[in-house]
């Protein structure tokens, strides 16, 4: 394996890990607070991607730079509207119920949204690469690569990690989310409305998934099924890290992203297998995940 391939695989892995991290950290946050495994999280990723592409195609003729605020608008819009509706009218009904029921219901929502997506955007590939093309290519150890993928995506992921940590540990809004997670009764006793806190947390997690989709949209053709691939991979990352672990999700995303990328360049037939092999190996040794622990604070 020569240096060029190593560099390419590393860059592929890092940029993909950034996207997987955004999606899986949203999944983990929602699980950590509401204790629900949301399969429909993958739909939020897919809708974020399609919405960003739709906005991008509409605004690019005016000025391609408008596609950047378009990415953000798509993430916030999809996360708030679709995420808000999902939580308020469906998931709220199944908190605390049997996990099998929760999985079935969120899986059903995922299937419905997947079909609706085909109705809205069709099955032909959609390509909206303006944000990617706007930024220059850079050379990393002699290998040319887009700065969108080598700098912007990991940058957004790192900022998300730092911002989320700061939000949860140091701001009032974050402290309230953790307080409700720790002791719902005590929170209610001091006048906090847990339902409202759950709604806000879910929307935050949904925006992260949609942001992952929006940021991924310039790097790939959008096709039916993109949500499936991402939800499965982000589950692998969240489980490897330990559900609810935010910093752990970043490290697990990097591990899995890099391993997958190196597999593509060396043994492409193992591309699909590698993430799950890592997950299985980790879970065999540490069933609670790399960073999961049976302790009070779960996020």
């Amino acid at each position: 394996m020569n240096l060029t391939i190593v560099v390419l695989a590393a860059l592929d892995g890092i940029s993909y890990a950034a996207l997987v991290f955004l999606v899986s950290v949203g999944l983990s946050l929602i699980f950590g607070v509401m204790r629900i495994v949301n399969v429909a999280h993958g739909s939020l990723y897919a809708y974020g991607a399609y919405a960003a592409a739709t906005i991008g195609i509409a605004v690019a003729p005016i000025s391609p730079w408008l596609t950047y605020p378009g990415l953000l608008l798509a993430a916030i819009g999809v996360g708030t509207i679709l995420g808000g509706l999902l939580e308020r009218f469906l998931l709220r009904l199944v908190y605390g119920r049997d996990e099998a029921l929760q999985l079935l219901i969120t899986f059903a929502v995922f299937m419905i949204l997947d079909n609706l997506q085909r109705v809205i955007w069709g099955v032909q590939p959609i390509f909206a690469a303006a944000p990617l093309q706007l930024l220059p290519n850079i050379s990393v150890l002699g290998v040319g690569y887009t700065s969108y993928q080598t700098l912007l995506l990991p940058g957004v992921a790192a900022l998300t990690l730092i911002g989320l940590r700061y939000f949860l540990r140091h701001t009032l809004g974050g402290a309230v989310i953790l307080a409700v997670t720790e002791d719902r009764e005590a929170a209610t006793a001091i006048g906090i409305n847990p339902n409202r806190v759950f709604l806000r947390t879910f929307i935050l997690g949904a925006i992260l998934a949609a942001l992952g989709g929006a940021l991924a949209s310039p790097t790939t053709s959008l096709l039916p099924g993109i949500g499936t691939e991402m939800i499965v991979l982000s589950f692998a990352v969240a489980a490897t890290a330990g559900l609810g672990q935010i910093e752990g999700a970043a490290i697990a995303a990097l591990m899995i992203g890099l391993a997958r990328a190196f597999a593509i360049y060396t043994y492409p037939e193992f591309e699909v297998l590698v993430p799950y092999a890592i997950m299985v190996l980790v879970l065999l040794i540490r069933p609670q995940g790399l960073f999961g622990a049976t302790r009070l604070r779960r996020i």
């Binding site: 809004g173 402290a175 307080a179 720790e182 002791d183 009764e185 005590a186 001091i190 006048g191 604070r297």
Partner: peptide, 23 residues
């Protein structure tokens, strides 16, 4: 009924913020 993983002052600040409706 305390938020065991929060510091005492954090718990009180959450209660005070709840009283003032700014959460």
């Amino acid at each position: 009924q305390l938020f065991l993983e929060h510091t005492v002052i954090e718990s009180l600040l959450i209660a005070a913020a709840s009283r003032n409706g700014r959460l």
